[in-house]
Design a protein around this nucleic acid. Structure first.
Lengths: 229, 229
DNA sequence: CCGCAACAGTGACGATGATCACACAATGCG
DNA sequence: CGCATTGTGTGATCATCGTCACTGTTGCGG
């Protein structure tokens, strides 16, 4: 499957890995597909490898005992998920669920390590991925600590724009992904109703808009301001 | 300085690195000391290496524009700080300040990479450190999302016990470190006054006590329960 | 041993944001 | 094409927790 291989290479290199390593890795990967709603794994499961997203999207979340959900991220093609299990051998720390029909490549821990031992650049790459995850986690925590609700919503939108944003004109950014307010609320750690209020204030003020169901950031700089610590 | 070298080896191996690598690393490190209150670095500084703590303690924190502080961790001997800058080349993401007179070893990014490229096990080790940081960050975020104030305080105490805890009898754990309520509050993300109330409730209920200025967890299991998601 | 400074306890009050209870779109499907 | 399901807008109320304003305590340096 030439097509698959090129997909994989593309995917791995998306998070910045160089080409020959990507294809080496691609050779180790086992591709497969899942339907929306499928659970890749849940927190506490033993983790024996990681996944690269070729196509589709997944959500990473943690849930409380009484069912409340905290979304950590929504990830699209080119992202790696489940990488923590690759590092230490410990259990999965979050839930990952498919949001859309999704094509994935699974990389087993052993194989990864064998390959990476001969290609330390791969370790460096992994390190930089995990590093940016950690930075982001700290940013979110900072937002939770210091920002009132609107600031956290702003942060959430910008974060989503990072993953799904398509720049249009004048610095406006369209978030090319169907998001419900509930999704945003679960990321921002707020009640859906309040997110609604904030979003409407902004819509009226012209900082965001909705274009045929997609949110559009009319003024990302203003949002950045609002989410500054 | 034989003494220093053995200190270093001991330090690096504390987070689980094997002995020969530790001494290899030790050879790369530049030792120095700082006084309490000294700022190792602040968020936004360019980061060109990481530090191993030989002796003393540091706090890792982020601060908001209006000066509120969120403690991410208090770290003691054997811990590594500033490792993020080692991974990607990006700026420091938090502040690190000495709390006590502290002896450190600085490892430069270049040197580290050169050494690690020949010893991939070191990369793996680094990966597992960063991995556990990320796990912990997620735990804290989960607590913020789901737990009311007492739960977060419980989590904070347990986390501190992880770093500074000395088991005494019957599963009781003494936190061998001078902590003010303000410190705990800044970790738990709560107002000092409310932490005071919670702590007193627990003192009266016998779940925690103060033994000559140190907090002692009389019933860690109960606290774990209280901080369960 | 005294006095100051940092730390700790406690009440009162208020604001932020969660929850409840709806009416009102949209969307999709038989 | 209607009906159902899922998403959205908005007010009213309530609880948690932060803030303010103190008093009481502890420990340390002169």
């Amino acid at each position: 499957m030439v097509e698959l291989k090129s997909f994989l290479e593309n995917s791995f290199s998306m998070e910045g890995l160089d080409c020959e390593l990507a294809s080496g890795l691609a050779a180790l990967a086992r591709p497969f597909s899942v339907k929306p709603g499928a659970i890749l794994f849940e927190a506490g499961d033993p983790g024996n490898g990681c996944y690269a997203i070729l196509e589709g999207s997944l959500k990473v979340s943690i849930v409380s005992v009484d069912g409340d959900e905290q979304l950590l991220a929504v990830m699209g093609p080119g992202s790696i998920v489940g990488e923590l299990a690759l590092l230490d051998g410990r259990a999965r720390s979050a839930n990952v669920t498919a949001l859309k029909p999704t094509r994935l490549a699974f990389i087993e821990k052993h194989r990864f390590e064998r390959f990476a031992d001969e290609n330390p650049a791969l370790y460096r790459h992994m390190l930089s991925i995990v590093g940016s995850r950690l930075r982001q986690a700290n940013d979110v925590l900072a937002a939770r600590s210091f920002l009132p609700l609107p600031g956290r919503v702003a942060q959430t939108l910008l974060q989503l724009a990072e993953t799904f944003g398509k720049p249009v004109d004048n610095g406006r950014v369209l978030i090319h992904y169907k998001l419900s307010q509930a999704d945003i609320a679960n990321m921002a750690g707020a009640a859906r109703e309040n997110v609604s209020r904030v979003l409407n204030d902004w819509k009226r003020a012209g900082t965001v808009s909705r274009i045929s169901g997609y949110y559009c950031l009319e003024n990302p700089d203003w949002l950045r301001q609002a989410s500054a610590l």
